[in-house]
Design a protein around this nucleic acid. Structure first.
Lengths: 155, 155
DNA sequence: CGACAATGCGTGTTTAAACATCTATTGTGA
DNA sequence: TCACAATAGATGTTTAAACACGCATTGTCG
């Protein structure tokens, strides 16, 4: 008896353990939706990573955030936030200023252009979420979120 | 009331919808474990993507698989399987041969060295899985796998 | 049979990820 | 106070991801 995940990946052998099946299920599911989101965002000229940064900076408001704080808030950690912000600065969606008390810090803020772009992109993402994740019941959604939380926190 | 995911990402604003929380939970969880696995595999000199290919080719046995079939079986699809296989061929873990009936096809097979490496790497991965995913109950594991399956299959 | 589409794979190129290293600034303790 | 560690950020470099395009082989249909 083959699971549908095995059929999807054309696996000829059974999973070696339930944990292996869980890991593959998780990675496969995340990869599928990550790819779908990238495709949905492409017309907006932005990547999922950049979208994440814009969301973070909108949440930070006028105070903005420094480079390392942005990095700590990202869903997927990236090892080179500096050049990630460089690229977003080139698009005009964010602005950086080195005017604080501690002159090591560079405060990054979302610009009005970035806010405007983000508003329309949010609509795209909302549609994406409803289309691709909206078929679960409320209870299924809640259970899944809870179990993922349990999974992330060993012990 | 803030969820622990929000605390983890230092989110100041609530999720805009349960679906957004689900998506972020999924991506965050997958990213954390993907990173952990990469770290666990690093001493073996292999990436998670390469590990995936070796597993696929072991499953295929002596018959081997052509480039496109390998690509279709991967957990995360990559757009350049050719050079992915190039690199694995350089390590000696796989071998390619263009000797079939249809001369367009190139059959890729895992080598004895690849099989041997894979055996020891499997032990590493098993340890990784137990350490990082082994704290769920059997029922939680099963529920999670089932819900992820439902999630992947819209409608 | 012969033109042409389809398929399988390789190659070229651009961009970003990943890792190490470096500079500037600030904190700390003898 | 002054050496030195710690922190924040930038930079250099290598590698792989991503995308488009090209070549060779096979299938198909007039």
């Amino acid at each position: 008896m083959q699971t549908e995940l095995q059929a999807e990946l054309k696996q000829t052998r059974p999973f070696r353990s339930p944990l292996e099946e869980l890991f593959v299920s998780l990675q496969r599911t995340a990869a599928v939706f990550e790819h779908s989101l990238e495709c949905a965002l492409k017309p907006s000229g932005i990547t999922a990573t950049q979208y994440n940064v814009l969301r973070i900076l909108r949440g930070a408001g006028d105070a903005g955030l420094c480079r390392s704080e942005v990095g700590e808030r990202m869903v997927r950690r990236v090892p080179d936030v500096t050049r990630l912000l460089d690229r977003l600065e080139d698009t005009g969606y964010i602005a950086r200023a080195r005017g604080g008390d501690d002159r090591r810090y560079v405060t990054t803020r979302i610009t009005p252009a970035g806010l405007e772009a983000l508003t329309s992109i949010d609509a795209v993402v909302d549609g994406f979420l409803r289309t691709h994740l909206g078929h679960l019941t409320e209870e299924q959604t809640r259970t899944l979120v809870d179990l993922l939380s349990v999974l992330r926190h060993t012990r």
